[in-house]
Design a protein around this nucleic acid. Structure first.
Lengths: 339, 339
DNA sequence: GTAGTCCTTGGGAGCGCTCCCACAAACGCA
DNA sequence: TGCGTTTGTGGGAGCGCTCCCAAGGACTAC
């Protein structure tokens, strides 16, 4: 491991510069020399020292993934693991490394931000946030650190990729309407999160588009946890609702439980549709109709976008990349349309 | 951001060396000078350049977490997210950073290993493996990289921390025996994983210790997935078993489903005990009796151990650290002892 | 045969930091 | 007062790499 460029150069009978050129794929090296040098590199297992290299190139090939504190509660939700899976997959392929930062305590956040971002460790950052008022993107913008947001962020300078929360919930609610329901309730996600707000908007607009009234009693804000789905459903059982669109599968599972306890069952007494298509969704009783979102692709796309920005920085004034990945309805038993 | 030591030195009216001493807490600096320098550092928001620093110190304050490929399938299991949570928490507190490596394809593994470990990016590695025959620890040992294994590894030179899989399953099986069961089945985890093997061993030894025979028909190997729990239970329903010890909650949930489909229910027709105490365990119907394992503490402990080794390397010949964190039984409805 | 060109190679400088040695000033002791 | 010792500070060297400039050789064109 104590091997340096100079050592390889000596072994190959060339100069330090030539070895450097070979490693960095510089064209002006004779092909015999190039092969000769590669051979020595392979034989010795030489790897350039990352710190020395990035001291001069100002690049580390490390991306940061920052998951802010409010979201961490949801970490047992499969969303983040799958997202990370997609991100690492793409990073590996392009020989980038990944630094994971979970912001635990808001009080430490400032200090942590500086440690992570200020010392040149990272080439760019993936912000896995979905809070509209997250201050992190603005700070990164101010510091000139390339970054990409997972989700939607209401600032035109911010690059982001989201899944189609709005479209997905439109599909879900439309499906319920098509099945003849008119009293359709929703258990929303937290409205401070863009996904929560967007899924609720899809619900509202679809009802309106079909001339159905919005009944405030049928709209209950949850927080993506099973408990909140359970509690909301207890209340909804006292309304005329015949169908529930839950903004997450986990909440839908809570709804199923409340139904069960009340001696009722889906879809006979209440149609249920969830959102996410977590692995569990297909194996609960009854299997959950839900909106599938391409989480892994989202991770890949976000990593790809960031690496693209690093490789070829967009012009200062140009518009930020904003895109949306499609979602689609997966019909199973809980809505009453299948087998 | 273009601020360097030299710049701070000029602003504070001292030399580069003095600023370096202040930052590194070297004692021989007059306290007035020290304060003066700190003030300039705070005002300017200066951060030492990580690459320059680690070029000379040969330290990066980055730990790697490596999750090998075979385990990735289980990534949606809350185990890894919670483990990562514990690890990051402890790393943050000690100003270490975390680099996450998921080994996706076995074919790339070799290449990936070199890229991650060979270039001096990492001070140490946490191997989140539980496979007995994982080659990674041996390779790290050979390359002299400090590392710690999460789980148990059958090599005396390898530092590791595990949770008490054996003791936990002893408790579970003993509980079933105490409730009067004599025909106790088990759905084990994969036997190539230490956790799978150890949990099965606890089952076997506890039965033997109580003079109960081992019936091979009552032992079915699963793979920690819900599907395998479901399939195993279908088979167990055709045996005299009156109780099932499932080596994971997810498999226990699969067992519950199979029971339900057969028109039976726990604990009346079959007592069920799981392992892990995942969040879902308390909210399924009936709530799952299970063995709780301190995953987050496991993460913290592992990070702590590795950082300790880095700060104060053990003598070459000294024994490796091997420890086990306690597990304990959480009694709920599914075993028939509560409510 | 000489000048101009391109191609390939070598070596100096320098990235921002830490470590070490040297030196000045302040102090203690005979 | 003179010596040695301690304390605090400054600056050179060098970590391993990339970048740039210069120089040698081969080649073409006049």
């Amino acid at each position: 491991m104590a091997l340096t460029l100079e050592g390889i150069a000596r072994l190959a009978g060339v100069s330090r510069s030539t070895v450097s050129r070979v490693i960095n794929d510089h064209p002006s090296v004779r092909s015999e020399v190039r092969e000769q040098v590669w051979q020595v590199i392979h034989e010795t297992g030489y790897q350039p020292h990352a710190a020395a290299r990035s001291l001069v190139t100002r690049r580390t090939r490390i991306l940061g993934v920052v998951i802010p504190e409010p979201i961490i509660k949801l970490f047992t939700d499969p969303f983040f693991p799958i997202l990370l899976y997609g991100i690492t997959e793409t990073c590996n392929a392009q020989h980038y490394h990944l630094m994971l930062s979970l912001f635990h305590h808001p009080a430490e956040q400032d200090d942590q931000y500086r440690r992570i971002v200020g010392n040149g460790h990272l080439d760019g950052v993936i912000v896995a946030s979905a809070h509209m008022d997250d201050p992190l993107p603005l700070r990164l913008l101010h510091d000139g650190i390339p970054f990409v947001v997972v989700g939607r962020y209401p600032d035109e300078r911010v690059h982001s990729i989201d899944i189609d929360n709005f479209g997905g919930s439109c599909q879900a609610v439309e499906h319920l309407i098509r099945l003849g329901h008119t009293e359709i309730a929703t258990i929303s996600g937290p409205l401070t999160m863009t996904s929560g707000a967007d899924r609720l908007l899809g619900y509202k607009q679809t009802l309106s588009a079909h001339g159905l009234p919005l009944n405030p009693d049928l709209i209950i804000e949850g927080d993506y946890t099973e408990g909140s789905g359970y509690a909301a459903t207890k209340r909804l059982l006292m309304t005329p609702a015949t169908a529930i669109f839950a903004a997450s599968d986990i909440m839908a599972i809570g709804a199923l439980k409340a139904l069960h306890e009340a001696g009722k069952q889906a879809p006979r007494d209440m149609a249920i549709i969830g959102f996410d298509d977590v692995p569990l969704a297909s194996s609960v009783q009854p299997a959950l109709t839900t909106v599938r979102q391409p989480i892994r692709q989202l991770g890949s796309a976000v990593a790809e976008l960031l690496m693209g920005i690093l490789a070829d920085p967009p012009e200062p004034g140009s518009a930020a990349h904003k895109s949306v990945l499609p979602t689609h309805l997966v019909v199973r038993q809980s809505c009453g349309a299948a087998g």
